[in-house]
Design a protein around this nucleic acid. Structure first.
Ligand SMILES: [Mn+2]
Ligand SMILES: [Mn+2]
Ligand SMILES: [Zn+2]
Ligand SMILES: [Zn+2]
Lengths: 142, 142
DNA sequence: AATTAGATTAAAACAATTCTAAACTGTTGA
DNA sequence: TCAACAGTTTAGAATTGTTTTAATCTAATT
């Protein structure tokens, strides 16, 4: 299988051995044509239900964190009880659909580039994150 | 005391009775000249240590949430285990100092206004949040 | 003052995440 | 090839921020 080498390489580069569980994680994260957003529980469910591979939460967390550290995944800031991750690691922004608790990509071409006129002394900008919260018009905005 | 009426009004407008604990919360949140950012625990500590008023976490949470709902406080989205609130309810953006886990206001004049070229069908934009993560140059960026 | 609706509180429940430690597996080099 | 080691998996426990509960208390209304 062609992709196995790619997965193994990504794992090795993240400081991880290519184990059965981790290769399944790679299959879910890196084989789809399209990038997507997910929570840790989403990922665990996909592996267990679609790929029929039992996997512990601890393994999912440890692999995801290694990928994030290496830059193969991004974490998105939302005020939510759970963390959201993104397989799209390019520079882009997000809509957050509050009705469905779902992230939607906002391409670089769909938003004007952010220009910051101030800098914090002695600090470097690590990232600029934009979150556009949306909800259906007739919404209880509590 | 002049401010008592203001606090009582804010509480009443948030659907809350002006109790001893809640007036202390108001004193902390709404008397300072400058706005500030805080976590629930920060607030509890200030009330107990500086104002010597015992207060339960449940009361802090319930009051903060009522103020947020009414618009007297804003909650800021950061990927953090805890929630950050802001007594500055005007439209503004933030720097997040990752070294100190501290928010810094970014005035409207310090960042170009965000122009979004796409809209999500059937959805209304509720807010546009920008978070600029900063850290000292020589930083372990794990 | 009595009544009642709402508030306070300690403690329990909850949920996401992290940690632990024992069993297991991939890798390496003899 | 295979023993030995280092790294991995896992269930379950621990941790942490937040929410809920239910008993007690208090502000508001009469
Ligand atoms: Mn959490
Ligand atoms: Mn939490
Ligand atoms: Zn995305
Ligand atoms: Zn602010």
């Amino acid at each position: 299988m062609i992709n196995l080498n790619i997965y193994t390489k990504k794992l090795r580069e993240s400081g991880l051995r290519p184990t059965r569980q981790r290769l399944k994680i790679c299959e879910v994260l890196f084989s789809p044509e399209k990038t997507f957003h997910f929570t840790v529980n989403d990922l665990k469910k996909i592996i267990e239900e679609k790929l029929s591979e039992k996997i512990s939460l601890a393994t999912v967390y440890n692999t995801i964190h290694a990928f994030k550290k290496k830059g193969y995944l991004k974490e998105i800031s939302i005020n939510s009880d759970k963390s959201y991750f993104d397989t799209n690691t390019t520079d882009h922004q997000h809509f957050f659909d509050e009705d469905k608790s779902e992230l939607i990509d906002c391409g670089d071409d769909e938003i004007d580039s952010i220009n910051i006129k101030r800098n914090i002394t002695g600090k470097k900008i690590k990232s600029i994150e934009v979150l556009i919260r949306v909800a259906s018009d007739n919404q209880n905005q509590n």
